[in-house]
C-alpha cells in the first residue's frame, strides 16, 4: 500500500469519538476523499488544528486502509483562511462553497479546476469583500465544473434554442428553460428574460442589479432543491445575507 502525498482543502470535519477525527478532504490529485486521523492522543493533538475546515493542507495518507477510509499519517497547514471566521457573511459563503463541493463532487474523481477555483475563492474571502454577484458567479462556475449547471441555453423539453427575449420560463424540476410551446407540458415559473438570458450568457462578465441577483438566488434555490434534490443547509444564510 503506497503512501500518497498531496495537497488538500479541508471540506468538513465530522464528530467521531474523542480520540479520532474523520474529515472530508478535497485533494488536488484525487478529488474528494474521506479520511481518518487515528488517535494516539499525541498524533491527534498534532493534527487537531490542521484538520479544520478553512485550511489548505499538505497531507500524507494510506488509501482506504481502515473501513474504506484513508488513514492520515502526516499533515500540516499550507494556507490558513481562518480570518474568514471574523466576518459572519464571509463565513457563510465559505461554508456554502465547501458544502456544495462536499456534497456534489464524486469520491476519488479529480477536479483540478474546482480545486484551484475553491482555493482562489477562499483567498479572496480572506482578504477582500465578496459581493452577492461574485458569490452567484462562483456558485454557477462550480456547478458548471461539477456538471450540474442548469440549462439556460436550450429548451429542456424539445432541445430548441430559445432566443434571448423569449427566455422567461424556467423549470426547476426539469433543470432548465422551456420554450413557449413546451411550457404547458412541464411545471415552471416565470422570470424576467433579463435574468435568464444573462444567466445563460458569459458568466465571467455577468452583470445584474441587486434585484436580479436576489431573484437568481431564489431560482438557484429552487433548482438545487427540486432538480438536484439537495438541501444545502448553509444556502439559506448565503441567500439572506446580501451586501
Amino acid at each position: 500500500m503506497a503512501r500518497v502525498k498531496d495537497e488538500a482543502i479541508v471540506l468538513r470535519r465530522l464528530p467521531y469519538g474523542e480520540s479520532d477525527r474523520i474529515v472530508h478532504l478535497f485533494t488536488s490529485s484525487s478529488g474528494k476523499i474521506s479520511a481518518i486521523a487515528k488517535g494516539g492522543a499525541k498524533s491527534l493533538r498534532r493534527f487537531m488544528n490542521t484538520l479544520e475546515p478553512l485550511r489548505i493542507i499538505y497531507v500524507e495518507y494510506f488509501d482506504k486502509s481502515w473501513r474504506g477510509l484513508a488513514r492520515i499519517e502526516n499533515a500540516h497547514i499550507l494556507e490558513d483562511f481562518s480570518e474568514i471566521e471574523r466576518d459572519l457573511r464571509k463565513f457563510f459563503i465559505a461554508s456554502f462553497l465547501t458544502e456544495i463541493v462536499d456534497k456534489l463532487a464524486k469520491e476519488k474523481e479529480p477536479y483540478p479546476q474546482i480545486f484551484d477555483l475553491l482555493g482562489a475563492a477562499l483567498r479572496r474571502l480572506k482578504t477582500s469583500q465578496v459581493s452577492s454577484l461574485d458569490t452567484l458567479m462562483l456558485l454557477l462556475k462550480i456547478l458548471e465544473l461539477l456538471g450540474f449547471l442548469p440549462n439556460f441555453k436550450t429548451c429542456v423539453h424539445c432541445g430548441k434554442t430559445v432566443d434571448q427575449k423569449s427566455k422567461t420560463f424556467f423549470s426547476s424540476e426539469k433543470g432548465g428553460i422551456l420554450c413557449g410551446s413546451c411550457r404547458m407540458f412541464n411545471p415552471y415559473k416565470t422570470y424576467p428574460f433579463e435574468l435568464l438570458s444573462s444567466l445563460g450568457g458569459d458568466q465571467k462578465t455577468l452583470e445584474m442589479d441587486d434585484e436580479l441577483v436576489k431573484m437568481a438566488f431564489e431560482l438557484m434555490d429552487d433548482f438545487m432543491k427540486y432538480h438536484l434534490d439537495m438541501d444545502f443547509r448553509s444556502y439559506r444564510f448565503v441567500k439572506s445575507s446580501h451586501s
Binding site: 456554502f96 448553509s234 444564510f237
Partner: peptide, 10 residues
C-alpha cells in the same frame, strides 16, 4: 454554536 452546515444560525 453557529454552524451553517447544520443549518444553525445566530
Amino acid at each position: 454554536v453557529i454552524n451553517p452546515l447544520e443549518g444553525i444560525g445566530p
